[in-house]
Amino acid sequence: MREGLKKVVRYAASFFLIVTLNFALPRLMPGDPVKNLIGEDVYVSEGVMEELRAGMGLDRPLYEQFTAYIGDLLRLDLGYSYHLHSPVADILRDRIGWTLLFVGVSVLLGTALGTLLGAYAGWKPETKANRLACCGFITLSCTPPYFLALLCLEIFAFKLGLFPFKGFYDVPTPGSIAHHMFLPVTVMALFSASRNFLIMRGSVIQEKGQLYALYARAKGLYDTSILFRHVIKNASLPIITLLALDFGFLFSGALFTEIVFSLNGMGTLIYDAIIGKDYPVLQGSFLVIALAVLLANMLADLLYEVADPRVRRPA
C-alpha cells in the first residue's frame, strides 16, 4: 500500500514538473516572452502584439498566470499557432493518431522480435548465428535511428523502387497504408528490437543459471520448454521496465524516422515548428509526448504487477 502511494506521488510530481516546465520555459528564456509564447518569425502587427500582451496577462503575478495556464490546459486549450493559423490542440489531434499508430505497431513488433531472438541468443550464446545476431543488434543500437532510416529509404525506395518514399497513403485503404508504412515500421521495429534483444539476452543468460532451470532440466523437460515455460517468464521482467523507460526514447526515434520518410505525424510537425520557430506547437507537442510517456510508464507498472506476483504480494 505504501509502495502504491509512493508511486502515485511520484507520478503526480512528474506530471506537475512537466506542466511547470512547459509553463516556465517561454517565460524564463532570453528574449521577449510574448515572442516566446507566440513564436518568432511571425508577422503580427503592432496592434495585435499589444492586444496579446494584455490578453496573456504577462504583467500579472506568476501564480495567477500559472492558475490561468492550468485552467487553459483543463479546457484543452494549448494556445494558438500563428504559423498554421489554428489552435494547437486541433493540429495535435490531427497528427497524434498517426504517430501513436506508427509507434505502437513498431514497438510491439520490435519487442516481440527482440524478446524472442534475445531469449534464443541468451539460451545458446555460443552458436555462430547467435553471435552474429548479437553483433548485428549491437551495431543497430549504436546507429542513430535517422541514419538507419535514411539508408533504408535510399536503398529500398530510391534504388530498388520497392516502396513509396513519402506519406502515409495515396488512397486511404489499408493496403496502401501498409505499403507506405512498411519501411518506417521496419526501421523502428529493428531499432526497438535491438535494445530489447541486448537486455533479454543478458537476462536469459543470468536466469538460466538459476536452480529452477536446473530442476526443470532434471525433470526431463526439453530445452525449448525450459526456455519458454520457465526461464522466459522471469527473464522478461526487465523488458517491461525497459519498455516503459524506453518509450520516450523510442517516441523521439519515431519523430526522426517520420521526418526522413515525410510522414505527416508529430515528427514533421516538430521539424517544421523548429524551422519556423513556432513555439506554441513545440510546447504543445512536448506536453502531449510527455503525457504519453507518463501514461506508458503507469501502464508498465500495472503490467509488472500482473506479470510478477512477487510485486503484488510483498513478503
Binding site: 512537466i18 520516450g248 526514447f249 519523430l255 523548429i274 510546447q283 510527455a290
Partner: peptide, 11 residues
Amino acid sequence: LIIPKIPLIII
C-alpha cells in the same frame, strides 16, 4: 527519469 529527454532538449 520519466520526462522524455529528446523532446525536452528539442524545446
